[in-house]
Write a protein that binds this DNA or RNA. Structure first.
Length: 561
RNA sequence: AGCCUGGUGGUGUAAUGGUAGCACAGGAGUUUUUGGUACUCUCAGUCGGGGUUCGAGUCCCUGCCGGGCUGCCA
């Protein structure tokens, strides 16, 4: 961000594009696209791709299209398409009027299929699914030509027409490219380019009975849109020769496909299939569960677009398999939130604190800084009285050596308010401390002592009368292992779910007025972490917070050892 | 097994034949009205074996290891 462009280290894709531009390839134009299939929700892996494609377009003064790759009506739904658009927009990227669908090109694709037949480079094949599989050969042995491979061009044309008109049942025939059944690249062994599917399409309705395969649609869609660089993940590497073959044989604009390694993250799963299981089998509460790495989940959790974009820039880009530590994501989140999130006061585990020398029935307001990182945010008034609540963690009857917080006889600062000294404690029948009784020093109002006296600890508090009851959902990593997919026999990733990934605490108290905040706006509860109001607050009637991420805590960390 | 592809600290990513750097994580410290933030210092790496070269992470050979590929999914 702060780096000058000249100092910025470029990744291999940006290097490649820089070179193309300098050689005036495509007249120096750069045009990318983000091409999700609308068959599920976008996740963090897509964020990387979105930032890459839209980012590169911006950096090189080019454009990036949003294209929904809707060639398979069996799996795709309008709801997913809508969610995708919403998510890309939320991240802050703009496709202007360049929202496209692969289905926009069905007519052209169909013409191109006919052109291929006419060039004797495609044929209608009657082999069943199973027969085709057997004829394909294996990784180490070549395939056999289809017995239908040598049909005449006229016959192919006629048969393909009948396929299109819906005269054959699903699966009975395919249109295949005529390439090479003994290619070591299995994708080149006469791949299917059109299949029969009597299925209504969300965009084209019942117009088509045949649908193009990915390989026959993707490159050509890129070509039609004038894409210069088609960026995709590593598993499409073997498809590049096919991508190239279609562009060459159709003699159309030929974008450059470049593959990069997909993103993996520790303590989570990133595949649509596995996420679907988490949702379907009820291990999480839907696709937007704040523990899910979906954009919707992360948004609900309190992630900001900027933190996700910063993360995408930091994860790097290469062709080797990689697993990013979730700590980097958390770092980017905290870094962004620290600058932006307003500070508020709250206690998760309330403990009564009474100031015995504070006048009965008196109350006042103290000035609290809204954001120490941003003076323009100013300050606010927070109610204060002789009856307060502090956090149980901030008091210990028998503190260890380096404990800086409240203890019998100790003086600490109540943030923004006064110094208080613990004089007495009250216990219940079980012997648990239920109240600490303090005296305060009226001269320390605002939190500084005129005599220059220092305290080691500063703790947060809320006024007992005016603070608001709050439910807090504490989220932690979804899985207990860095790589949940690493399993012994008889295990699968489900066995590695973290049983404590969600803990709800009911009796929290937060400062007056906080419950009026808008849903999803992140704020910091001082000394605890970042939170935002969950939409459930409206339906359930409680004030419910999601913990986005806790503050770093070097005290509890050093205390563990 | 064949083909493709990759291998740099714990993790990720730079160095395009010339001092192996940066970030996160870890450790130590300074500052602090958040045990936060910021800042400083620190730990730690070129998969192995040969070769070319004045000089190799980089080039060559070879071995090892990881990932991908046998959908009418994308």
């Amino acid at each position: 961000m702060e780096e000058k462009d000249s100092e910025k280290k470029l990744d291999f894709i940006r290097n490649h594009i820089t070179e193309d531009v300098s050689k005036q390839k495509n007249d120096g134009r750069v045009h990318t696209r983000f091409p999700p299939e609308p068959n599920g929700y976008l996740h963090l892996g897509h964020v990387k791709s979105i930032c890459l494609n839209f980012g590169i377009a911006k950096e090189f003064g080019g454009l990036c299209n949003l294209r929904l790759d809707d060639t398979n009506p069996v799996a795709e739904k309008i709801e997913y398409a809508n969610a995708i658009k919403q998510d890309v927009k939320w991240l802050g990227f703009c496709w202007d009027n360049r929202l496209f669908h692969a289905s926009d090109y069905f007519e052209q694709l169909h013409e191109w299929a006919i052109a291929l037949i006419k060039k004797d480079k495609a044929f209608v094949c009657d082999l069943s699914f199973e027969e085709m599989r057997q004829n394909r050969g294996t990784l180490v042995s070549p395939g056999k030509n289809s017995p239908y491979r040598d049909r005449s061009i006229e016959e192919n044309l006629e048969l393909f027409k009948q396929m299109k008109e819906g005269e054959f049942p699903d699966g009975s025939k395919t249109l295949r490219a005529k390439i090479n059944m003994s290619s070591p690249n299995l994708n080149l062994r006469d791949p299917v380019i059109y299949r029969i599917l009597h299925k209504e399409h969300p965009k084209t309705g019942n117009k088509w009975k045949i649908y193009p395969s990915y390989d026959f649609a993707h490159g050509q869609s890129d070509s039609i849109e004038g894409i210069t660089h088609s960026l995709c993940t590593l598993e499409f590497e073997h498809h590049r020769p096919l991508y190239d073959w279609f562009c060459e044989n159709l003699e159309i604009h030929h974008p450059q496909q470049i593959e990069f390694a997909r993103l993996n993250l520790t303590y989570v799963v990133m595949s649509k299939r596995k996420m679907l299981r988490l949702v379907d089998e009820g291990y999480v509460n839907g696709w937007d569960d704040p523990r899910m790495p979906t954009i919707q989940g992360m948004r609900r959790r309190g992630f900001t677009p900027d933190s996700l974009i910063a993360f995408s820039e930091r994860v790097g880009l290469a062709k080797r398999e990689n697993t990013i530590e979730v700590e980097l994501l958390e770092h980017c989140l905290r870094h962004d939130l620290n600058k932006k999130a307003p500070r508020r006061l709250g206690v998760l585990h309330p403990l009564k604190l009474t100031i015995k020398n504070y006048p009965k029935d008196k109350s006042e307001e103290v000035d609290a800084v809204n954001n120490p990182e941003d003076d323009s945010e100013g300050s606010r008034k927070v109610p204060f009285s002789g009856e307060l609540l502090i956090d149980k963690n901030d008091f210990m009857e028998n503190p260890p050596k380096k404990y800086f917080r409240l203890a019998p006889g100790r003086e600490v600062r109540l943030k923004y308010a006064y110094y208080v000294t613990c004089e007495e404690i009250v216990k219940d029948e079980k012997g648990d401390v239920v109240e600490v009784i303090c005296t305060y020093d009226p001269a320390t109002k605002g939190g500084d002592s005129p005599d220059g006296r220092k305290v080691k600890g500063t703790i947060q508090w809320v006024d007992a009368k005016t603070s608001v009851p709050t439910k807090v959902r504490l989220y932690d990593r979804l899985f207990s292992k860095p790589n949940p997919e690493e399993c012994n026999e008889n295990e699968d990733f489900i066995d590695h779910l973290n049983p404590n990934s969600l803990k709800t605490i009911e009796n929290c108290m937060t400062e007056s007025g906080l419950d009026q905040i808008e849903t999803g706006i992140p704020f910091q509860l001082e000394r605890i972490g970042y939170f935002c109001k969950d939409p459930d607050s409206h339906t359930l009637g409680d004030f419910i917070l999601n913990r986005t991420v806790p503050l770093r805590d070097s005290w509890s960390k050093s205390n563990k050892n």
